[in-house]
Simulated scan of single mutants.
Amino acid sequence: MTQVDTAEAETGQGGADRRETGAGTWRARVRRAARAVFRPGPWKRGPLLAALTLLLGLVMLLHAKIPNRIGNLGSLAETFLPWFGLFVPVLLAGALWRRSASAVVALLLPVLVWLHLFGGLLSDKSHPGSDLTVATHNVNADNPDPARTARDLAASGVDVLALEEITPQAKPLYEKELAKAYPYHTVQGTVGLWSKLPLSDTRPIDIVDYGPLADTKPLDKKMVTNRALRTTVATDRGPLAVYVAHLGSARVNPRAGFWTASRDRGAQALGEAVAAERNERVVLLGDLNGTMDDRAFAGITARLRSVQDVAGKGFGFTWPATFPMLRIDQILVRGVTPESSWTLPDTGSDHLPVAAGISW
């Protein structure tokens, strides 16, 4: 091959390379342009995530507006309201994975709403010292060792102790084990009060729903009679009205949804009893089978305040004892100052005891 042929070949090959390179560059430009057009920016990514995040915030913010007409949905949402915060890290992980700026910004709404509702429970609001300590405990009708439960409660040293789900079979055991620490006591049906101070003006409070769907347990345990009482504790600072109550159960039923009919009617009756109470100083102790965020307790929370909100530390969950998820055992007061609130160790029941210190 001559030098001319070689040069022409080289020139032709170079031209082909240039043509191919130009074509590749043109295709790359088209692909980049297409990606720029069809691939959304960070503010347009994850619209579904952003919508779900805003919906979460609105559900928490407007929980009182959720209707109860369908399956008691409003009360169900309010019962588990603190746990809605667990959706926040899940949505945050999704927003980061999708690189969605809009979803990240939308998270501000549920975070701020949750902190507004429950942020105060994260700090310790308790104060040392009190004039009187009180406690309440659902001891469980099926408790395998009531004597052990009674001994654990006596060791707590509280001044006034309320018990719920006392069966006729276990009643003598509680009376025996608690007699030394608490010289005064009363048992009305399945609820009782043990006190280091004298009691007077004791009477049962009728809160039981005897309708066809009433909360029931085996008849030999008589769980449908006398589930609340009222008594007066004589303190050196004056009389203290004490109510003990065990409201009906709340159940999730596939047909009825979140069924709380018996409990809600009991809560209404209990609220009316407290409203009629003439004593300025009142303490309500008991298993109310619901959280105080639930609208069903509006008649009670309008007149009494929860010690956990004022002087507690954390959420103070009491049920179930093995992995507490809800605070359904309550101490509420009027006319006295809550100084501290805490849960006691497991006693063998399916609930944890809850205690509080109060002052005049």
Score class of each variant (00 low, 15 high):
Gln13His: 15
Gly119Cys: 06
Lys196His: 07
Ala103Val: 13
Gly129Glu: 10
Gly357Glu: 09
Met325Ser: 04
Ala321Trp: 02
Thr11Gln: 03
Ala7Ile: 13
Trp342Gly: 14
Ile300Phe: 06
Gly211His: 04
Gly357Ala: 08
Thr347Lys: 08
Ser130Gln: 15
Trp319Asp: 04
Leu178Val: 02
Glu177Val: 01
Leu107Ala: 06
Val134Arg: 08
Thr347Cys: 13
Val283Pro: 07
Ala51Lys: 00
Ala135Ser: 11
Leu178Ala: 00
Leu247Met: 10
Phe38Cys: 12
Glu8His: 10
Leu213Val: 11
Thr186Glu: 13
Ala16Gly: 12
Gln308Glu: 10
Leu178Ile: 00
Val252Arg: 12
Val104Ser: 06
Trp26Phe: 15
Gln3Lys: 11
Arg251Tyr: 12
Leu284Pro: 04
Thr343Val: 14
Ala34Arg: 01
Leu122Ile: 14
Gly119Glu: 03
Gln308Ile: 08
Gln3Leu: 15
Ala28Trp: 14
His246Leu: 03
Leu344Pro: 14
Thr291Asp: 06
Glu339His: 14
His63Ala: 13
Leu122Trp: 05
Asp287Thr: 03
Leu285His: 00
Ala275Cys: 05
His116Met: 08
Thr186Asp: 13
Gln268Trp: 07
Phe118Ile: 13
Leu173Cys: 12
Gln268Tyr: 09
Val283Lys: 04
Lys125Gln: 13
Val252His: 06
Arg265Pro: 06
Met60Leu: 01
Ile207Cys: 10
Thr21His: 12
Leu108Ser: 15
Leu81Pro: 00
Val224Gly: 08
Thr231Val: 11
Val187Trp: 05
Ala23Cys: 13
Leu270Lys: 08
Ala228Asp: 04
Ala181Asp: 06
Thr318Ala: 01
His246Phe: 14
Lys196Ser: 12
Pro67Tyr: 13
Leu55Ser: 07
Leu285Asp: 09
Gln308Phe: 12
Leu81Val: 04
Asn143Met: 05
Thr190Cys: 12
Val4Gln: 09
Ser195Leu: 03
Ala170Ile: 06
Thr231Ile: 01
Val336Thr: 15
Ala7Gly: 09
Arg255Cys: 10
